[in-house]
Amino acid sequence: MSRDIMAIVSLDANTIRGGVPVFIADSSQQQIEIAEELGRLMRGDVFRLKNGMLILLPRAER
């Protein structure tokens, strides 16, 4: 089962290379808020990568 990335919420615009909707936040707090809101809207799970990016994946079918 593959889960395509729905969106990325990042603090750094330079690290992003397209292909997925990207939301740039000004601060960590704003990054969390955007991810939380997107997660609710798109019914997605939010995951944090070690480089600080938040990615949204479709909620796993359980």
Binding site: I32, A35, E36, G39, D45, V46, F47, R48, K50, I55
Partner: peptide, 20 residues
Amino acid sequence: QDSNLYVDNIYLTNVGLPLH
């Protein structure tokens, strides 16, 4: 551990949001 959720020493999932 960071955003990774463990039960005992078994990795379960990644939870990105602090509230969750």
